[in-house]
């Protein structure tokens, strides 16, 4: 028994020496991929942190399309943030104006408008926005 164990140990050492020289190509490939993903992710985040982030959210809104829908009018809007930080609970108000008078008002809240991205939403009106002047205004945001 002891002799058998001893022989196994010797074989093990021999194989150890051989195998440490030749790591499985799959193990090499996966660890190399891991290294690339790691450096890539840290690099992108670090770059973003150094050059792109910080400052205030700069959020504006634009009207995309207006269509009649189920007895009311639907204005699709997009809120976009060109600033360096994310705005939360971004409130966008749409007002239908005629001759400087407010005719109708509606608003919506975006949970988040991340830095550098766009979020879509919609406003409903009982009157056709095409007949009036539709003004969009971003009312405010909270820091997430």
């Amino acid at each position: 028994m002891a002799i058998a164990d001893h022989r196994d140990d010797e074989e093990g050492q021999d194989q150890d020496r051989e195998s440490s020289a030749a790591l499985s190509w799959l193990a090499r490939a996966m660890s190399l991929l891991g290294l690339c993903l790691f450096l890539g992710a840290v690099g992108v985040l670090g770059y973003e942190g150094l050059f792109r982030s910080g400052g205030d959210p700069v959020i504006r809104a634009r009207v995309e399309t207006v269509a009649a829908m189920g007895g009311q009018w639907h204005a699709r809007i997009t809120a976009f943030n060109t600033g360096g930080t994310t705005g939360a609970q971004v409130t966008v108000e749409g007002i239908l104006m005629r001759d400087g008078q407010m005719v109708e008002r509606s608003y919506t809240v975006f949970d988040y408008v991340p830095a550098g991205s766009e979020q879509d939403g919609g406003l409903f009106f009982t009157r056709d926005p095409g007949q009036y002047e539709l003004r969009l205004r971003v009312l405010g945001y909270a820091e997430p």
Binding site: G34, F38, R52, G116, S117
Partner: peptide
Amino acid sequence: LAAFAVGFIVSALMLGLLGIITPDQPFTQ
């Protein structure tokens, strides 16, 4: 590093499958 690669790829696939990440989002996001 292999475990990191597996974790990263699995996260990317699952988040994509669940519709959390979509191609139209900014790259850094």
